[in-house]
Structure formats: structure tokens, C-alpha cells
Design a protein around this nucleic acid. Structure first.
Lengths: 333, 333
DNA sequence: CTGAAAGCGCTTACAG
DNA sequence: CTGAAAGCGCTTACAG
């Protein structure tokens, strides 16, 4: 029965002090080259694996970053996580992940665990419940422990921490305006649980041309009959969908009922996954750059940890991108 | 500037020994009720948070489970992760996540980090590269350190560890047979990078009725022209798609070209996400139960850790489920 | 260049 | 019921 090899054991087998072993393994210039080699060879032979718990206890940091996301089932967040994980891996850091499922309670429990683990920083997309209730003591707690926080995509105005967002509101406005230029006269917004801020861009755009806004609420299922009626009455010729999922649902419904996209109805959505790309017609979309957001969140977190950032909070606003594909008509010039 | 409160500080402020404080906080029956309360009140007041690194150093375990998955972008794996995370959270454990992106190298690096962190167990869906190359030293290493491993969905026959799988092969066979009973005479299999084992079920089913198998390879893009030709020639009336993504791509293509589902072509796929469910027509599918697999993986891991399982490896084969919706014709009885 | 010693923050026999 | 002491596995001044 093999136990994990420790410095003590190596020390015994090599007849060297623990200090020397430790220094040799860490490439300390104090130690002679010969000794370093001897130690390393022995360590490899004995399958020595350093104990991070011990190292961290001394160092006071854990090499671990806490990640709290609402869910992984939403492609936006899984992509964001992929960006975060890759950036963290590159820096030799580890990702400790908790999912809040939009619940304040679960978020709190996760953060508690994270603090106990001595995380070096936190990247979080706060739960809806947190945002709405403005209960942020579990987060301010981190601030007082000097654990930096970066919010991703969703901002918490009540707390002073760095944040990553996109200019999605502006891009929504431009996208709507593009649809109008392409001939759309009746654009509705298909809204789900997400996308509260997205509505704003839509409203802004319609307001600027003096048009009435029409928002159709959508929760797991949307009012098909109503939509079908509008299609038949030709009282709709454009849809901005709050998510790709929602867009695909609507588009399949439209196609299935014999209407054409974009001839009868233009459809644009948010997020850019391969599924929207490979749909027929290929889905026009506003790419929210989740991976880049994740990457930038990590970058910002480390800049903050390393004291490279001025005090006060910083907001990085990433450019989102309108990707024009076949589900919207080309702009008439 | 607030530092984290330690037992030592509480000890000073209360004029009690560190031992007493520690025991009180852990509800040791040795300590008087009055003291326990006093200590707890003071701890709360000082925002005391236990240091897990220290605790784990003593205990020799970390309360952390390593999770290594190929990706989060594939809905199967993000769902599996949701199942794992919830089960772990319920038990007060933490998830340390690494993504392999199907690369042996990345998988190795992740596992290395995980071992250094003293994880108590590992749940892994091995990378394709690992499976193909049969390089498993990074995993056998864990075995020799008595860190239990459970594989999820993808099995590694070369290593003696517990595994979770489904009966997808059998269900594929049944699903194909159902399609035949519903009148399909020319069923093709649309195959991607995943789904090697899935082909087997398809082949098995066609072989059993003496039909020729037709497999169309699919990588990010499939041969549209070829498919269109088959549709026009009516030489195809059923498709088994290796993934939901693939199914949606094909279905939108079929609808877009004026054919009907399932009247002209039946389509069945794997995995069961809300997107397939809300598609028109709703996608028939073989549900691979990723969340349940994740859940069961955690359960098995803890049973193994707690010595509840007999020595030798155990394979849990979960029932996958054929979900008949509108993209396949009803079975004629 | 090598080693003895202290200490990171906790837990847990052991003594009183 | 409370406390002194040892120790988990490491790192790092300090001494030699």
C-alpha cells in the first residue's frame, strides 16, 4: 500500500535535510547543481507529488479561482466558462466551480465554500435573485478579505468591483436599424427570462424612428397561435429573439408553417454558437463574445491581484459583433 | 486592513486556549454549552472563516473532487456537469474542473494539478486522444495513490475503475427497428466525431433485417448536395443523427428545401435538450441521461471512497430512454 | 552549499 | 470541562 511520498521520506532516503530537498525541488540557486539533480531524480523515482495544501498554508494563497455561474446549460455561460478555464489553465491556476441556478441561496452557499478554500479571486455572473434582491453581503465579505471580484456580463452596481460587459445595447439598436433599412416595418422583440437589458436596445431603436415597440414574452413556450395569426395577417416581418434557443424555436415554427425566412420574416438573435451557424437559413446574430469575456475577466482579475490596476472599479466594455447571415435580408443601400 | 481571523486571535480575545476554541466550533461534546455559545458568538462577530488548507493538511483529504471533461460546449457534457455539481454540492464537496478538449496533453496537465491539490476522487470522460492512444499512466498514477476514479459515458478498458454508461447501443437498435416498423425503408446514419459506439447499434439493427447500412460522415458540415439528391430521388426516408446539433442542422435543411418531417423523412437523434424539444417538429431522441449519469458517478465515487463497494471494478449501466416525439412517424401496429 | 528551527492554521490524542 | 503539545507537509529566514 503506497502512501504519497513526502519531503521527509525523500530526505531520509537521500540523507539530506528537508530544507535542502525543498530548495532543490524549487530550483533554488543556493543548492549545488549536483544535489539538485540527485534530488530530482529521486523525487521522480519515488513519484513525489508536492502537497499543495501544505504549500498554500505557508503561502497564504491557493492557486485557485472561484467561478460562480448561473448554469452550464445555457451556451453563453458554457462558452464563457471555456474562456475562463483556458485562461486560468494557461496561468497554472485551478477553477473551482459553483452553479447558482439563479438562486441567491445557492450562490451564497457556493461563495461560502469558496472563501473557506482561500480562493485568490472570484469571477461571477450573479444570479437574478441576487441582482433583484440587492443582497450582496456574501460578496462584500470578499472585498473585506481582499479577495478581488470580477463580474462577467451581468453587473452588480451595489458593489465596487471590476466588471466585464459588452456594448450589446448599442449593437441591438444598430441591428434593429439595419433590419429597418432592409425593409422590415414590424419588428417584435421575443423576450425570455434573460435579456432585460437587451430590450432596451430594441426599444431605443424603435423609439428613434417613432415606431411602437412590441414585446412578446416567452417562457419555455411562446404564444404560437398569436404568432401564427400575425404571420398570416402579415403584421410582422422581423423578430429579434433574446436567445439563440428562442430563435431556433421560432424559426422552425415559421418554416414548418410554410413561411420563408427572411423573405416573410427576418430573424436575428443573440449569441453565436455553431448551431445557429449551421441552421438553414444561417442565423444572423449578435455575438456577445462569451469566451473573450471569460478571457478578459481572468486577465482583469490577475491585473487586480498583481496591483496593476488603479484603485476604484474598472469596467471593460467589449465590442459585441453583429454577424449578418441569411436569416435577415441584406440592407438596401 | 482586515486580515482573516484565525483561531489564535479568537483565543486571545476570549482568553481561552486554541484547542477549546477549535473544539467549540466543531461542536465537540467535551465543551460546555456556555463556552460553545460564547465562542460561536465571538466567531460570528469576528467574521471567522475556517481555513480549509490547514484543516485538510491535518485530515489528509481536501473535500474536493476533480472533474475532467472534454468540453463544456457540448450540451451532453454541460448537462453531465450540472448533475455532478449538484450532487457534489449536496454533499458539501467542491468541484475542481479541467477541460481536455479531447487532448491527451491537456488531460495530463489537468490531472497533474488535481493530484497536487489532493483531490479525494476523480470523475472523468476521457479525451478521444487518451482512449485511442491507450496512454493511461496519468490515470493509473491515481490508482496507486488510492484516489478512486469513475469514468462517465466513455469507458477506459485498460484501467480498473468504476464506470457509468448507458444502454445506448441497445436503444439505438430498438429505435431503428421502430422506425422500420413505422414504414421507413432507407435509414441512414449521420455520423460525427462522436458516436462511434452509436454506429454499432444502427448497424446491428439493419443487419438483423438484412438491410445495407449507409453511413454519412459529418464534420461541422455535411454533404448537402448528396443529401438533397437522395431527398429528391426518395432514396432516403429516415435519419439517425449522432447528435442533436447534427439533427437540427439536417432538419432545418430538409424543411428549408420544402420537404416534410416526418412525412418525407423521419429524424431521430441523441441527447435530450430543450432545444430539440421546442423545435418544430419536436425532435424524437434517445435521451442519454447526462444528469443522471453525473449524479450516479458522484454516488459511485462516494460509495467507493467509503468502502461500500466490493473490490474490483463496477459498471453501472443506466437505461437510456427513447423519446418519441413528432420528428418520427408513429409505429404502425 | 547545507541544515536546524520556526511557523502557516488547524485538529486531536493526552493530561489535568 | 479546559489546555499544552505534537504534528499535518511544506517554505524560508537564519546560522554555519
Amino acid at each position: 500500500m503506497q502512501r504519497k511520498t513526502t519531503l521527509k521520506e525523500l530526505s531520509k532516503s537521500l540523507n539530506l535535510s528537508i530544507s535542502t530537498i525543498s530548495k532543490a525541488l524549487n530550483n533554488s540557486p543556493e543548492i549545488s547543481k549536483a544535489t539538485v539533480e540527485k534530488v530530482k531524480r529521486s523525487a521522480a523515482l519515488h513519484n513525489y507529488i508536492p502537497n499543495f495544501a501544505a504549500r498554500n498554508l505557508k503561502a497564504g494563497n491557493s492557486g485557485t479561482i472561484g467561478i460562480v455561474l448561473p448554469t452550464m446549460s445555457n451556451p453563453f455561460f458554457s462558452s464563457a466558462f471555456e474562456g475562463i478555464e483556458a485562461a486560468l489553465m494557461k496561468r497554472g491556476y485551478k477553477s473551482l466551480v459553483f452553479l447558482s441556478h439563479e438562486s441567491l441561496d445557492l450562490e451564497r452557499t457556493g461563495i461560502q465554500k469558496l472563501v473557506e478554500t482561500q480562493i485568490d479571486g472570484l469571477i461571477i455572473s450573479p444570479a437574478h435573485e441576487t441582482i433583484n434582491s440587492k443582497s450582496i453581503q456574501h460578496l462584500t465579505q470578499l472585498k473585506s478579505l481582499h479577495i478581488p471580484i470580477v463580474t462577467l456580463d451581468r453587473t452588480l452596481h451595489e458593489i465596487a468591483c471590476d466588471s466585464i460587459t459588452t456594448d450589446e445595447e448599442l449593437k441591438a439598436e444598430i441591428a434593429i436599424s439595419n433590419m429597418q433599412k432592409s425593409g422590415c416595418k414590424n419588428i417584435i422583440f421575443l423576450s425570455g427570462t434573460i435579456g432585460a437589458t437587451r430590450k432596451t436596445g430594441y426599444k431605443q431603436a424603435l423609439k428613434s424612428v417613432g415606431q411602437v415597440t412590441r414585446i412578446m414574452e416567452y417562457h419555455s413556450d411562446f404564444p404560437k397561435d398569436e404568432l401564427l395569426e400575425m404571420l398570416l395577417a402579415k403584421s410582422i416581418d422581423g423578430i429579434m429573439a433574446c436567445s439563440e434557443h428562442c430563435a431556433i424555436q421560432v424559426m422552425s415554427f415559421i418554416l414548418q408553417n410554410g413561411f420563408s425566412i427572411p423573405q416573410d420574416v427576418s430573424v436575428i438573435s443573440y449569441h453565436n454558437s455553431s448551431i445557429g451557424q449551421s441552421f438553414w437559413p444561417a442565423l444572423s446574430t449578435i455575438d456577445l463574445k462569451p469566451e473573450e469575456q471569460g478571457n478578459l475577466a481572468v486577465q482583469t482579475l490577475f491585473d487586480r491581484i498583481n496591483g496593476l490596476l488603479p484603485s476604484g472599479k474598472i469596467n471593460y466594455q467589449l465590442d459585441s459583433e453583429i454577424i449578418q447571415r441569411s436569416s435577415t435580408k441584406p440592407i438596401r443601400s
